[in-house]
Amino acid sequence: MIYGSATVFTLLLVVTLSIKGSTGLQWIVSGLTVGSIYALVAMGFSVIYSSTRVINFAQGEFSMLGGMLMYTFASKAGVPVPLAFILSVIIVTLLGAGFERLAVHPLRYSSVITVIIVTIGFSIFLRAVAKWIWGSDPVKIASFSGDKPIRFLGAALVPQSFWVFGFTALAVLLVFLFFNRTIVGKGMTAAAANPDAASLVGISTSTSSLIAWTIAAALGAAAGIIIAPIKFAAYSVGTMLGLKGFAAAILGGLGSAPGAVVGGLILGVLETIAAGVFPSGYKDAVAFLILILVLLAWPQGLLGRRQDVMA
């Protein structure tokens, strides 16, 4: 299955490149750029899911908030970009951690439906509050290092793309190191693999849930900030981003961090190619179709293990 789809995907890239030439290359690079963002959001889903079996429907709103806060700090208040970045991420992270303590943690023994509804409530709440604060018009955030496109084999790359690639790589590395090299992270990995053994590895489910939400909120916020200069930022972008991040997580295999990255990149590229080929109004439908098809035909995704997906 994995090799099959890798082959199909490579073929698709080759075909796109040979038919469309530099336009094709342009699509692929833009696809990889948004794909990186989907990957970060997908990692947020996966981190929370693997340690708590909760799907955080508000994951996309973390990104939206990141972008909007960045706008307030960097574009409105004139705070230097690095500082604005850090401030925005910290605020969103505190919000995520606070929500976990106030709403998710008290419901740890409740049914899945209850927790779903609560995180949906949170996502609607954040979105609506953002609309109240920032209004409904999209806002523009300056790129981190100018907008002068870089030419590469006939394709024009915006410099922000490199920030996106670099940052995604860094974030993936940090998450990997945390879960595989630190004592707490290793404990969480072990506990996720075998919930019964959670108490043996010396990390309570309560702590691990809080840490997971903190990481996911930070990842989401950072993703929202670095993509904001390329796409516009607006109160409404979170829902769609969340859905696509989820689609990416499912595609890669929910709960698998490498899966999240692979799923995100593939989804980004497929979507951009589709947007080039089909009427643009249907662009968003691609992610949903992929989501539903993967869920139905192949629920464990590319790199995930078989899970309790099916009723």
Binding site: F57, I116, A285, F288, I292, L295, L296, V309, M310
Partner: peptide, 20 residues
Amino acid sequence: PVLRLKGNYLAMATLGLGEI
């Protein structure tokens, strides 16, 4: 087909259908 999915997955799938 979709109702073969459980909890979280069903929620996301129906959400996707609504958006489509």
